[in-house]
Design a protein around this nucleic acid. Structure first.
Lengths: 155, 155
DNA sequence: GCCGGTATCGCAACAGGTTGCATTTGTCTG
DNA sequence: CAGACAAATGCAACCTGTTGCGATACCGGC
C-alpha cells in the first residue's frame, strides 16, 4: 500500500526521474542517494530526519547521518521534499508535496495535520501587503491544541 | 538604555516580584536563578537559548546549560517568558511579552519581527472554526523573505 | 538557630543536526 | 578505456538542547 501522490505526476515516475534530474544539474547519482530515494519512495506523509536516517540504516548499515541530511537538502532544492519544524523544533520532512501547504501540530498529542495554502491565504496576503513579506508556506508550522486534547483537558 | 515593557507593569517591578512568585508556588530562589533573572532583566526582545547561556556565563563562569534551560522552562510557566523556534529550529525566547504575539523570520538575513495577534486573527479564527484547533500564537513562527532581501535577490 | 523534606543543581550521557576537511568516486572528455 | 576535475562521502568535532540521577542547599517549621 502506497500513497498515490499528486494526480498529475505519479510518484514512481517522479522518483525514477531523479537520477536524470540530478545529472542534468551536474549532480551525481550515488549508492547513498539511491538508498535514500528508496526509503523516500516508500515513505508517506511526514517523517522526521532521525526517522529517515534510521530507515536508511536498515537498508544500508553503513549510512552516515551527515550524508543523509546533505542529500535531503539537495532533494529539497529539486522540489521533491519540503521540510518544516515540529512544535519542539525537530525537523519534519514532507515527501512529494503535491501542493504547497503548511502544518498544524498539536502540542499535547503530537499529531500533525496539513493546512492548505488557501486556508492561510488571508494571513499571507495581509503580511505581503502590510509588510511586503513573502511567506514560505511550506515551512509554516502552527502549534496549538487539537479538539480532542482540548476536550480531554476539560474533563 | 532599557526597554520599558508593558505600560501596566514596569519590568523592574516584574523582576523584583519573581522571588516571591516562585516561593508562593513552593519553588526556590537560588543563586543560579538570580543570575538568569539578572541577565533577562537586561535583555530586550528576542534572545536564543545559547545566547542566554553565554550571558549567564559572563556573570557566573560556573553556569551549567541544563540549569539555565530548566529555569527558562519555569519562568515560562510563570508567564515571564515565551519561546518559539526560529526558521532553523533554534529556540528563541521573548522576554516579558507585554502582549501575546507571534514572529516573522527572514530566512535570508535572519531578522525577526513581531506580529500582533490581530494580524493573524483571521487565520486563528478560521482554524478554530473549521478544525476546532486552538492556536498557540506565542509559539507561532512564520518563515519567509523580507522586503529588503527580496529586492536584493532581484538585483 | 537547627532540621528535615524536597526542589534544584551539577554532571555525564545522550539526541538531533551541522560543519570543515581530507579522501574517494561519479561522470564527462578525448 | 584512461585521465582529470569536481561533487560527495566519511569522519570527527562541534552546537543546541534534553534527560536521569546522586549530591547539594533552600526554606518552612519547630
Amino acid at each position: 500500500m502506497r500513497a498515490t501522490g499528486s494526480p498529475h505526476a505519479p510518484p514512481d515516475a517522479e522518483w525514477a526521474g531523479v537520477r536524470d534530474r540530478l545529472r542534468a544539474r551536474g549532480l551525481r547519482w550515488t549508492p547513498q542517494r539511491r538508498t535514500l530515494i528508496e526509503v523516500l519512495s516508500r515513505s508517506d506523509g511526514h517523517v522526521t530526519g532521525a526517522e529517515l536516517v534510521a530507515r536508511c540504516r536498515a537498508l544500508d548499515p553503513g549510512t552516515i547521518p551527515s550524508t543523509v541530511y546533505r542529500t535531503l537538502d539537495v532533494l529539497e532544492e529539486l522540489g521533491l521534499l519540503s521540510h518544516s519544524h515540529a512544535a519542539d523544533g525537530r525537523e519534519e520532512f514532507h515527501v512529494l508535496p503535491s501542493a504547497v501547504h503548511g502544518h498544524l501540530h498539536c502540542i499535547s498529542c503530537g499529531t500533525t495535520w496539513e493546512i492548505e495554502a488557501d486556508e492561510a491565504a488571508a494571513l499571507i496576503a495581509s503580511l505581503e501587503r502590510r509588510r511586503d513579506f513573502a511567506v514560505d508556506v511550506s515551512h509554516l508550522s502552527i502549534a496549538g491544541r487539537c479538539a480532542d486534547c482540548s476536550a480531554a483537558l476539560d474533563a
